[in-house]
Design a protein around this nucleic acid. Sequence first.
RNA 1: GCGCGCAUAGUUCAGUUGGUUAGAACGCUAUCUUCACACGGUAGAGGUCACUGGUUCGAAUCCAGUUGCGCGCACCA
Length: 892
Amino acid sequence: MSDEQALSKAYEPSEVESKWYKIWEERGYFHANPESGKIPYTIVIPPPNVTGILTLGHVLNNTLQDILLRFERLRGREVCWVPGTDHAGIATQAKVEAALKKEHNLTRHDMTRDEFVAKVWEWKEKYGGVIIRQLRTIGSSCDWERERFTMDPGLSKAVQEVFIRLYEKGLIYKGKRMVNWCPKLRSAISDEEVIYTEEKGKLWHFRYPYADGSGYVVVATTRPETMMGDTAVAVNPSDERYTDKIGKTVILPIMNREIPIIADEYVEKEFGTGAVKITPAHDPNDYEIGLRHNLEFINLMNEDATMNENAGPFVGLDRNKCREAVVAKMEELGMMEKIEDYTHQVGYSERGKVPVEPRLSDQWFLKMETLAKPALQAVLEGRIQFHPDRWVKTYRHWMENIKDWCISRQLWWGHRIPAYYCDKCGEVVVARETPAKCPKCGHDHFTQDPDVLDTWFSSWLWPFSVFDWPKESIELKKFFPTQTLVTGPDIIFFWVARMIMSSMEFMGDIPFKDVYFTSIIRDDKGRKMSKSLNNSPDPLDVVKEYGADALRFTIIYIAPIGQDIRYSNEKCKIGRNFATKLWNVVRFRLSQGKAPLGWPTLDGIDPKAFRPDDQWIIYELNETIKEMTTGLENFRFDEICKGIYEFIWNKFCDWYLESCKPAFNGKAENGDTIIRIFDYCLGAFLRLLHPIMPFITDELAHQMGFVAEEDSIMKAEWPKPIDDATLASFGATAAHAELTEAKCELIRAVRAMRASYNIATNSPLDIYIAPTTEEAAEFLTRDSAALKSLLSAATLTVKENCKPEGPCGTAVSTIATAYIPLAGVIDLDAEVKRLEKQEAEITKYLESIRKKLSNQNFVARAPKEIVDAEKAKITEFEEKLARVREQMKAYK
RNA sequence: GCGCGCAUAGUUCAGUUGGUUAGAACGCUAUCUUCACACGGUAGAGGUCACUGGUUCGAAUCCAGUUGCGCGCACCA
């Protein structure tokens, strides 16, 4: 930061950004003090997988959180952003297994469980949490002293405590149930981890002969490989085709086992042949029927979905190979009726990427119904608000149809289930430590349950486990409940709903007040970002090329609420160019030297010293402050980006800064005052922009001298709007702003005329302005200095009915007619054509309004102010039209 | 099957309670290297707001239906 050296023309973000992040972190600006008297504002980060690396999705998500937090920090809240990572059971275990395979050609079964878990910890310490470091490059103001990991001792303690309490309450139970089994992971998974995809398959029709030799019944199946486990054929009790068959038996081909024909309402008469083979151990619906009819459950498969000894001739075959073999065998036996093409949904394991196998196994479950009730109420009653709120419907549907949660996983990496089995009698004891003595048989040796808990069983406690629950820490007291959760709608069931349930249960309170659901980021062709398509840019490359501020600004700017985003790196030009624009505003300003220390105010400026442009920009800035504040309070992130961009670029730079140039060139009388007002605006919008673009705003605040070297914009106060009375005393009113808009219209009309005659925008001309009203005359006269500059006028005459001698160009606008003497330049025919064009436009517009007003119903029923506004337009445009026609007449 | 979105300029999108001559960015055309910025300025071209009907004095906006696309949930073997 050298004072003397001029700033380069283009902003170079990389050095600035790394410099500031380091300073902020070293000075402890991100650290939250639980003992401060300030009102807390807390966000817990959605913990990314410890194996993860930063994606654009994270950039969006974390930038949104950072914006909220930086905004609240400036507003004086005690801001606490808890970062951390998730141990991600399956993902992490798989990663380490892959590494072991690659480096040592070992599997986890080549070592003990403890050895393997030690390897995972080793991997985690060495390679884990890359994403946490990457978050710093995009400016995330996390309280790094509070970084947590879901397997930290404290959090593990919380998990154990929760399990035990729920078990003691009778909400956790163990039982043999049909679960979604992933043969790749060799573990159960929850319903939410099954992804259904449509697939083209076959529907095989098999003949099952009646035991009495009276022909056969035809059953249809999509899963021939399970037929060896059939223990019945079911028909609908009201199906007349089969009434006399119910109670008979059929011979199961291949196995030559006799199985009954039973009646069950579940069977639909219209589908297939109306007769269904029942395999209770391999299909959820068949399982239910098996229970109802007390059928035998024959498990055909091993953990890896190869066929076991119950599969007769197919022992040892993989389930896919077995399918082919069964089909071939049935053909051979003449038992194949027909084969149809059939499209159906197949459930895949989200992590294992293979079809799930419904499987009967011993698992731990959590009863959800009682937990769901208060959690649903909290959302329906609006104590927790979803943004956009349509997600309430999805949430409600899920909560009202919630099923028990299978929480056990047959993995090695994760929280062990605190259940112990007596080695002698098998008694189950759920306890905080290994029991000393069996309560039943007195035996003193126990074995802990080998299973671990679903990863989400730790993340659902995140909002309070990070504050050391079940300890009643001062942090927990201060920072819980949190304010806002920012996350993707894809984990509304996995995570959001469950956090609400656990908080209601264990904290007796909501975990957060607002949930903001982010957009999904797609590529510019609308495809999802994916590794295989290679269409997912590395955010770090983007930061390198465009800067973190530019990426942050761009991604928020293009992200509409509740809609997907189409992203391409190209778009970061929006943010980069905007940063350069800001940079150059300061370069321009610094031509006058640094500002005095402190955030500029308007205190002590004589309101009489305000030029019309000053009054206007003060008014517009005030509006922007209000919009930014309410926009942030209401999660309208794209709007606030557009708003501040519009203010800075199209209002401040395009008009206000231009109006200041005479003052900056020493050609204005009250130059110092103008610079103070300029600084007031600059100081305000740097702070308004700080939550979105933290780096460049701190850099520029220092360049300007608003803050001392050892200080930061992070410690500043969010700008407050000026009250209406004070504003009015400054002459900064809405009416004044309207007049200024009209002035801009006049200037544009003159520029357009220059353009049509190919006169350079800066070539000095003698310009005559004839205002149409006294008010306009007063205003334009008062503003003549700025006007002269904005119009590049050699001389400027502002006077009612003034007009130069000789041929001239005419620019008609609402508040004035401007004339430029154009002897020798003007082409009368062209001038008439220009005017004719304008005449046509005005005439067309007038016609449309007249039509509206001639509608009696409109005049009678529309609100008076609407009708009056239309009438006023008629007067305004008729007057304008008259001036255009008068001018035309002069040339014809 | 049930539910939820989306369809506006060549492209990507705004348009918050129905009333502005429907906006922005990128791209395009013309012009300017003028001492903040060519990552820029100035001027401009470009839209039957998917379709059909309804409500209304008035519809891009509200309602119903149609078409097309996307997503979620549940499923018939």
